[in-house]
Amino acid sequence: MSEENIELVRYVTEEGLNKGNLSFVDDVFSPEYEVHTAGLQLPKGPEAFKMAVEFWKQAFPDFTCGIQEMFASGDLVGLRFRTTGTHTGPLMWMPPTGESFVVEGVDLHRVRDGQVVESWISDDFPRILFELGIVAEPTPPAGAAPPEGVALPKAS
């Protein structure tokens, strides 16, 4: 069953997120589907996935989610990914910047009886805003030193 669950999540990622095809969504997402993500309330059911795809594809028509690694344990499927996109459409109230982003993350999906019933999404939205130049990355105060043993990356 684990391999079937992995293939379902792979199909959802490739067809839905990458190709923007939503024709299958009502069949593979439970009517009780629930999304857990920081700071965002989505309705229950397949509509939540449709709204997420439309959100990303409107702002980033070339949005892609590259699967780097997948695993399953019981009814859970983990997905390590790299998302990319170019900001050519409106992102909420923010006009297009023409800038691109590359962000990595890990999501977890629960699959039961051939349907996705629950997802935990780890969008790194602040990183996306930094890379698009919409929000400036925070910088430590002058003279501040990192904790002992921690090296900060050098500014480019």
Rank of each mutant, 00 (worst) to 15 (best):
V106G: 02
F49N: 03
W93D: 14
M51Y: 04
C65M: 15
S119G: 11
S30Y: 04
T84M: 04
E14D: 14
V25S: 10
T88W: 09
A145G: 06
F71R: 01
K50A: 08
G98E: 08
P153D: 12
W120L: 10
F63D: 10
F63E: 00
Q68M: 01
P141K: 04
A59R: 12
E99C: 11
E118P: 05
G98R: 10
E14G: 06
V35A: 09
D124C: 01
A48G: 07
G78M: 02
E4Q: 15
A145H: 11
P147R: 13
F55H: 13
P90I: 02
Q68L: 01
E32I: 00
M70R: 11
G45K: 05
I128R: 00
F29D: 11
F60D: 01
N5P: 15
L40S: 04
E104T: 13
K44S: 12
S30F: 05
P31K: 01
P90Y: 13
G66S: 14
G143T: 14
Y33T: 06
V103R: 04
A145E: 15
S156Q: 06
S100F: 06
T139F: 09
V117T: 15
G89N: 03
T97K: 09
R112K: 15
F24D: 13
T139E: 14
N21K: 14
N18F: 14
A155R: 14
V12K: 14
Y11H: 13
Y11C: 09
V117D: 05
S73I: 10
V9D: 07
D26T: 10
V28F: 13
I6V: 15
Q58V: 02
P96V: 01
L91N: 02
A151R: 10
L22G: 09
R112C: 14
P61S: 11
F81Q: 08
A59W: 05
G114I: 05
A52S: 05
E32Y: 06
Y11G: 06
T13A: 02
R80H: 10
F49W: 00
L108E: 03
K50G: 01
E137Y: 09
I121M: 03
A38S: 13
P96Q: 03
